[in-house]
Structures are given as C-alpha cells and as structure tokens.
Design a protein around this nucleic acid. Sequence first.
DNA 1: GTCTATAGCTGGATAGAC
DNA 2: GTCTATCCAGCTATAGAC
Lengths: 223, 223
Amino acid sequence: MRQDRRLRRRNETVQEILDTAIEVMAEEGVAALSLAEVARRIGIRPPSLYQYFPSKIAIYDALFERGMRRSVEILAPYRATIADDPCGAIAAGQEATIAWMTANPVLAQLMYWRPAPGFEPSPQAFEPAVQQLEILREALQAAVDAGQLAPAAASEEGLALYTVLISGVISQQLSNEPSAPPGQGRFTRYARTALDMFFRYYAPEEGETDDPILRRSRAATPD
Amino acid sequence: MRQDRRLRRRNETVQEILDTAIEVMAEEGVAALSLAEVARRIGIRPPSLYQYFPSKIAIYDALFERGMRRSVEILAPYRATIADDPCGAIAAGQEATIAWMTANPVLAQLMYWRPAPGFEPSPQAFEPAVQQLEILREALQAAVDAGQLAPAAASEEGLALYTVLISGVISQQLSNEPSAPPGQGRFTRYARTALDMFFRYYAPEEGETDDPILRRSRAATPD
DNA sequence: GTCTATAGCTGGATAGAC
DNA sequence: GTCTATCCAGCTATAGAC
C-alpha cells in the first residue's frame, strides 16, 4: 500500500537522522550536537529536520530510548535461559551489555550520565529502562529461588549494586581506554571478577544450598 | 613585592576563568563550553582570555587537573590514618570522595568520562590522578600487610575494581538522581555496602589473618 | 515534504592599536 | 593586559512558497 511505503520511507529518514546524530556527537561531544551538521550530512536543509523531530531535545530523547531498547533486546536471548541457569544468564547478559556499551560510547554516555543539560528522558523513553531493571530483578529473583543467591540479592540494594558495577566498568573503560577491543580492556576484563564479587557477597547462607560462586568463578575466570 | 602582586592578580583571574567555565558547563554541557560566555560573565572580551589560556582545550585540561588535585587533597586527612586503620581510612576516603564528586558533577564528568572529544588529559594534568591511585594502592597494601585483606586486594585487579565501584556509584547517582542531598541518594547510600562487598571479596584466607605484632610494628613505622 | 529566506543570535581565534 | 576590529563561520527555529 502506498501509505505503508510512505511511512516506511519516513521511518528510514528518522533512523538516518538518528544514526547521523550519533556520528556527530561522537565527533563534537554529546552536548555539542549540531542539527545543521546532521542535515548537511544527510543532504537536506536544516528546516527539513523539523518535519521529523520538533527539537534537538526530541532527538536526544529518541536516542536515549533507542539505546535503552537496544540494550533490552540484547538481553532477550539470555532472558530465555534464566530458568535453567540464573547466574549463568546474568553473567552472559552482563558480558553482552558491556560489549555493546563499549561499542556504543555515545549512547552509553547519554544513558549513564547527564551530558546534555536541559535533556531529561521522557517517561516514554525511560520505559525500556524500567523494563531492563525488571529483567534484572527477574534473573536475580530466579537465582534466589534456586538457592544460588541470598534473598537480599534481589532487593533494591542488590539491583542498585549490580547497576553500579555495570556502569562503573563501562565508565572506567571508556574514559581510560576508549579504544580497547571488546573484552580486552583494562577494566572490561575485570567485569567477570566484579560479578563474582557480587555473587560472593550475596552467597546463600550455610544450609541455604549449593554454592554457585566457587564453581562459577573457577570455571570462568581467565588469567 | 610588585612582581608578587602581579602574579597573584593573574592567578586570581585564572581561577575566576576556571570557576566560571564550570558554571557555564553546568548550564550548557561540558562539550558545549563557550569561551565567549565565560568572558562575558567575568567582564572581559573574549580575546583577553587568550592571555590566560591558549585554547579551549587548555581550559579543559586545567579543570581536569584541578579536579584531580582537589580529590587528592580530600584524601590527605585519611591518608594519615592508614597506618592505624587501613580499612577505616579507605572507607572514610571513599565516602569523602563520593560526597565531593556528587557536589561537583561537572568535574566528575570531566574526570570519569570523555565528554569533550579532542580533549585528552595531558601528562601533567594526569599526574595527580596517578598520585591518587598510589594513595589507594598504599592503603590497600597496608590493609594487606595488616592481615585485613588478601594480597590480591592491592593488585591491579583490586585497584581496578575499587575504581569501578567509585565511578559506578557516582555515575549512577548523578544520572538518576542528580540533585539528591549528599549521602541520601538512592545510590550513594549503598556506597558503603559496595565497599563491604569489595572487602569481603578480598577477605584474607584462613590462617592469613591479622597478626597483632606485625600490625603494631607497622603502626610504629614512620610514613 | 522539501525548500528559500530570514530572524536573531552564537562561536573560536588572530592582528594589531594603545 | 586589555581592547577593537575582524575573519569567517556557526547555530536553532520559524514563516511561508512550491
């Protein structure tokens, strides 16, 4: 249908704008995004951008949402394995998330700091972030239920600590060694260790069962 | 002496420029720092700024250095207590650092991310960062020597993990709840828990524990 | 949906007078 | 050390023609 084609075309342009905005921010800085430069690169005049986004802030918002959605999508395959092996799913999801974030430093910055004053994610853009936290909570709760972690792991504290670890690894890696290959960074290579630290902190009490940590850390820690 | 006064006056202007640059960055974003705006606010014309800094990058560099120096200064009082109580000194230093960083989000961003492409800290600006790491290493090593932590705590891994915790707490706090009062934030309130996690991960092995004699002799050793 | 034109600004940096 | 003048450019956003 004609309508569909038009919509598809429009959506392609929207995506092109967003892709190009990321490029420009990578070169100029997130706060120094220039719409005119974006327009130039995709071959339109600046006013035409306003057919797709009402303002610069709207572009930040769309990118924040895109980043969050993408990082939820990345978790999807691991989410399916939660029931089988909760701690394994968490570890795999963490690794994939960190790999994606270090490969997408602009979006990581937009998601993990406030680089553009005046921009605050809208509720709609924030929705996938909430969803992501829910997936994490689900995984931690499954680990608790399986007796692999103590109940506190799935509390607000546990969730907060987990996100602290993730954002800390990404932040340190990107600021100290921005161009390290994935998994080879001075900091990303300790991501697994950081997670073991988390797991060990929330190791179940004696009698609460099976200790996943020793098993896991011995199995997976590279040297 | 006349010379001194002139130097002092000059230095005052330098500090005023830096203070104002922080203000402007807080409003416009780190990457969107405008020198013209800085000049306007301190009541000079833009070209006059170039008597104090050769470029915008130089201002970023000076601010990075200032932030790093300041955060080393903050550690000084706790450094003196390392010999007495290494883990206590680490905890107190961590708390003070986090409080300062959350109160100085612009400098924190400059120190913990790369918000301004084209700016990379010069060796001189980076020097206090190295010093800060050395203080941390010293404290962790003291804790190891006192039998309070396992040797790995003072390794590259231990240092990396500690900085991951600090930057993670700050990053999460500033991006999710930028205006929380110190210590009351959803994330800063778990800073101490994060540190406990670290300490527990590096708990000394059985038999490696606390040797009171060794500990006392170290306490008596001048620094 | 894209354009031109325009408003009303802003920018970093240099040359050279005083 | 501060200025004017200047270079040469940049910007977001809107109005309205086609």
